[in-house]
Computed example of a mutant assay.
Amino acid sequence: MSTATETAIGEAKGTLTPVGLPHLERLEHLERLRGLLPGARVGAPPGLLLFARSGFTGDLRREADRRDDVEPVDLHRMYRGE
């Protein structure tokens, strides 16, 4: 059993349209502010998780593909895994 801890910041959207880059930019902003809070120190930068009922735009998927810290999670992945 692993004892590793991973920190993440996430956002869940139940909209009828796919989630795009502005949602990721909001999470990046929250990540920058997180270090200002007392007791908010972690060993590594947090992962950025986006959960969406209606999927993701192509630009957000391309951005997530090029980065290790962004994880888009759609309904298929939530209910069936990868």
Rank of each mutant, 00 (worst) to 15 (best):
G14M: 09
I9T: 03
L75W: 02
T17Y: 13
D68N: 02
V70A: 04
L48R: 01
R53C: 12
Y79M: 14
T7I: 13
L48H: 09
T17K: 04
A52R: 00
F51M: 10
V73T: 04
R53H: 11
R61Y: 07
T3I: 15
V70Q: 01
E6W: 09
G81V: 05
I9A: 11
L37N: 10
L30R: 02
E25K: 13
T3M: 15
G55M: 07
A8R: 07
E63L: 07
L60R: 01
T57M: 05
S2K: 04
E28M: 09
E11T: 03
T5A: 11
R41K: 04
V70Y: 02
R80P: 11
H23G: 12
R34E: 13
F51Y: 10
P18S: 06
M1H: 11
A12H: 06
R34V: 15
R26I: 14
L24G: 13
E28F: 05
R41E: 00
T57C: 06
F51N: 09
R26E: 13
R53D: 11
A4N: 09
R32T: 14
E25N: 12
R77I: 11
A12T: 08
L36G: 14
A40N: 02
G39T: 00
P22K: 03
L36R: 15
E11F: 05
R66Q: 11
G55C: 06
A52K: 01
S54R: 01
H76T: 07
T3D: 14
T7Y: 03
L30P: 06
D74V: 04
R32G: 12
E82R: 05
A52N: 02
T5Y: 02
E63Q: 10
L48P: 04
G14T: 07
R26H: 15
E63K: 04
P45V: 05
F56K: 01
L30D: 12
P45H: 03
G39Y: 00
R80I: 12
T15F: 11
L33W: 13
R80H: 12
S2D: 12
L75G: 08
V19A: 06
E63W: 11
T7N: 02
T3E: 13
G39R: 00
P18C: 08
V19L: 08
T3W: 11
P18R: 01
L36Y: 14
P72A: 14
Y79H: 14
L27I: 10
L27P: 06
K13W: 06
E31P: 14
K13S: 12
D69C: 01
G43V: 06
A8Y: 09
G20E: 07
L75H: 02
L24V: 14
L24I: 10
D59T: 00
L27V: 08
L60A: 05
F56L: 08
H23W: 08
M1Y: 10
T7H: 02
R41M: 02
G47D: 04
L37I: 12
D59H: 00
L16R: 03
G47P: 10
H29P: 15
D65N: 12
Y79I: 14
G20K: 05
A64M: 07
T3C: 15
F51P: 01
S2H: 08
E11H: 04
L48Q: 03
